[in-house]
Design a protein around this nucleic acid. Sequence first.
DNA 1: CTGCTTGCAAATAGTTTGCACGTTC
DNA 2: GAACGTGCAAACTATTTGCAAGCAG
Lengths: 131, 131
Amino acid sequence: MTSARRALLSALVGSDGHLTAEDLAERVRRLQPDVHLSTVYRALDALEALGVVDHVHLGHGRAIYHLADSAHHHLACESCGQVVEVDPSVLAPLARKLSDDYGFSVRTRHFALVGLCSHCADGDSTVERAT
Amino acid sequence: MTSARRALLSALVGSDGHLTAEDLAERVRRLQPDVHLSTVYRALDALEALGVVDHVHLGHGRAIYHLADSAHHHLACESCGQVVEVDPSVLAPLARKLSDDYGFSVRTRHFALVGLCSHCADGDSTVERAT
DNA sequence: CTGCTTGCAAATAGTTTGCACGTTC
DNA sequence: GAACGTGCAAACTATTTGCAAGCAG
């Protein structure tokens, strides 16, 4: 374990769990200024292989990373970009049904559910789009 | 409406609804050999803005396009790449719960649900990965 | 030492865009 | 012939990789 990885772990621990690789790189650099983005990706890959970290796709392209133990689902608002956490129990009935009816075992956590949050669903989405 | 767009529409109509932009471009070229991939993207954008076409993200990066009227959800197998269609009613209870409990209105169709199909969930995923 | 880790630059995949030209109505 | 559609090349975003050098155990 190197200093770069230690810094990454501390960034992950101190995060709200919704940071992109670039966000993490930025935070890592506060501790270790010369850490390259690709190093962050590689370290994240390693941590993911170890089961310490998971990544979730929020929308078109970008992914967020969080510690694997904080198991929760994500609702991503298409309008304001807000990310809401959802208890795993909410998805359980769906998972069961898909398994029963289709023999399909969903990895529900790997993708966020996109839609509109309570604010933005209210009539106008005057808020800035966050892709 | 140009010949390129007509060819694209016929490709969409004659498809199983799980084609990527590149797949579509290839099919379009059987009718109109010189249609460029970017033209396909632009035409798809236009059709999407008209509400004729929708796209769904299946996994890391690639998206598939289908006619908007064939409303269904997608289960994408991470192991063999197979895409299974699911009736919208299966997702309805979840959508209702998210709306009730979180005030969140999901666009459930925009992302596929990833996981393992019945084949691949069975013990070994000796099948080729299709990312 | 010996190998895993890093920084950098360049490659990749999927998609988008600027521009000058070609088609459609 | 005005407005829109197209081909091409280049830009872009998010991520990955080859390589030579660096640090950890």
